[in-house]
Simulated scan of single mutants.
Amino acid sequence: MIHDTAPDTFRPDLADKLRQLEQKYAAMGQDMASYLEGLLQADYLTYWDYIHLETLLSLQNPRTAYPDELIFITYHQTVELYFKLILHEIHQIAGHEALTAVFFTERMQRINRYFDILQHSFGVMVEGMDRDQFLKFRMALLPSSGFQSVQFRQIEITSTDFRNLVVAPEGTADDAPIEALYEYLYWKQGATELATQQKTLTLRQFEKQYGPQLVKLAVEFKERNLWRCFRRLQATGTASNDLIQELRAFDRRVNVQWKLSHLRSAVKYLHKEPEDIKATGGTNWQTYLPPMQQNRIFFPGLWSDAEKQNWGNARFGKPEA
């Protein structure tokens, strides 16, 4: 027990901290002295241990001897880490028990900051690799493809109503179950062989690995995706203009600017007269990547008809009003 009559050599502020610790551990039925003993025995934390530096730097394992493959793999791993942060923020919004426009807006600002970094970092891919090296080492990556980024698909699913991500046949009921709509997700059209209309190996691998997980996520977020969260605030009259602007910026960044960045990269590395080079995953990138072709909008109610008609234009995601 820490008493008020601490030795003169014992700092009063430390005595107060020890009292607080004692109360904390006592509330959990734990012995503070044992935890202090563990602290005495523990080594100091270092930066390299905290971020697991050696492990992190060991995760880049190029498949070829071409130097620029290290750029390729490191960049994609970096992108996935930012996707993880974006999903972290989305889950905070969706899981907030008393969501406010202020909290929602602040988290959307974080998300937009992450995507802004990603968009501007694409120069690492577009300008930062030797084209001849890329066209050679990419053949060792078959049939993998950035198309198989499950975290990007999770961002899409947790952002909007599932129906906004599908290209369903005419006559499909508006209230069709997610399990039925899953087959018509828009991005599956980008991994279909043009000649045979069969699913590419890239798509078959992806669906086998993640299909059930994505369906489960879509069901889980049916009523708490970002669009539904906004609509609830809107219904109570508490949605702010700042929030609307952040959601619009997010929609534009993901569905126009990010995809245009991918298109620029594909054009530089895969465009060749008279016929374009196939992507590693067999995706028909020429028709799949242009955002005007995809025409995906997370928050359709936040855009005017004129803006939606100009969606994905060459002005890098700044639709005209």
Rank of each mutant, 00 (worst) to 15 (best):
H3W: 01
T9F: 12
T9K: 10
R11K: 11
R11T: 05
P12T: 08
D16M: 12
K17W: 00
Q20W: 05
E22I: 01
A27C: 07
A27E: 12
Q30C: 14
M32Q: 10
A33H: 09
E37T: 13
A42C: 12
D49L: 06
Y50H: 13
L53F: 10
L53Q: 09
L56T: 11
D68F: 11
L70F: 11
L70E: 09
I71S: 12
L81M: 13
K84A: 11
H91P: 00
Q92E: 14
I93A: 02
I93P: 02
A94Q: 07
H96A: 15
A98K: 15
L99E: 06
F103C: 02
F104G: 04
R107K: 15
I111P: 00
F115V: 12
L118H: 06
S121W: 03
G128F: 04
G128A: 01
M129T: 04
D130T: 12
L135Q: 14
K136T: 09
F137L: 01
F137R: 01
M139D: 13
P143C: 02
V150R: 12
Q151D: 10
T158D: 01
D161N: 12
N164H: 09
V167W: 07
V167L: 14
E183W: 05
Y184E: 00
L185Y: 03
Q189V: 06
G190W: 03
T192A: 04
Q197T: 13
Q198G: 07
T200I: 08
T200M: 08
L203D: 09
Q205A: 11
F206T: 01
G211D: 02
P212R: 06
W227V: 04
F230L: 12
R231H: 07
L233A: 03
Q234S: 14
T236P: 05
T238M: 09
D242F: 02
D242H: 10
R248H: 07
D251W: 04
L260H: 06
H262V: 05
R264G: 08
R264C: 03
V267C: 01
K268R: 15
K272I: 03
P274A: 08
A279S: 15
T287W: 11
L289N: 03
P290L: 05
Q293P: 02
G301H: 08
E307R: 05
K308S: 01
N310P: 02
W311A: 05
A314H: 11
K318N: 15
P319N: 08
